[in-house]
């Protein structure tokens, strides 16, 4: 039933998109846009640089979904990254989304990313314990996500209380009543 609800909602949201696109990737692509609505970067953003780590297919899907429309009212640059790209490449991203494979998360890389206010999103919610800010998980056939509020604050990113109120929050900083 819930699945069908979600389906119907997505149908209305992406009425221009074909049915075959309403896959997990499409949902997550939509989620990426929604995150940008609730999270505030310290500097004003003219266009979003969304880096997809080692998943060219998703990168293409994302690019395709937002080819004819804006990504949260701004142009979208999808930047596919491969294993071994230098950390400097990673620093350009506003969002770094990694799925099955992850960059080696040494502390120096994480420090660099934090310094550049990069929002790290992982398909594995356990990554939020290891430096990622948001991690997806599946509950009752629905995609949910965990937010590490401390990691967000460390990267100087500000999440809306509405988002924190909705998501599962770990390491709450007390800035918001994050428990649900």
């Amino acid at each position: 039933m819930k699945r069908r609800k979600l389906f119907a909602a997505l149908l209305t949201l992406f009425s221009a998109v074909s049915l075959s696109a309403l896959s997990e990737d499409s949902v997550k692509a939509a989620f990426l846009e929604r995150f940008t609505m609730f999270i505030q970067w310290p500097k004003p953003i003219e266009s979003y640089n969304v880096c997809i780590y080692n998943d060219d297919f998703f990168a293409k899907t994302l690019q395709k979904n937002y080819s004819s429309r804006l990504f949260n009212n701004r142009p979208l640059n999808v930047i596919p990254l491969d294993i071994g790209d230098p950390a400097s490449e990673l620093s350009k991203c506003h969002i770094l989304y990694f799925r099955g494979s992850k960059p080696s998360q040494n502390e120096s890389l994480l420090t660099a990313l934090r310094k550049n206010n990069v929002l790290l999103i992982s398909d594995d919610s356990a990554d939020t314990r290891r430096g990622a800010m948001i991690g997806f998980y599946l509950e009752n056939n629905m995609f949910r996500f965990v937010i590490n509020q401390r990691n967000l604050e460390n990267a100087n990113l500000n999440a809306s209380y509405k988002l924190l109120n909705f998501a599962t929050v770990i390491d709450p900083t007390g800035g918001y009543n994050a428990t649900k």
Binding site: K5, A9, V27, F31, R34, M37, F38, L163, F166
Partner: peptide, 15 residues
Amino acid sequence: ADLVTAPLAFFDMDG
């Protein structure tokens, strides 16, 4: 409206 913003944004009808 505030409370329903995030559930609505992330397509959570139950929420």
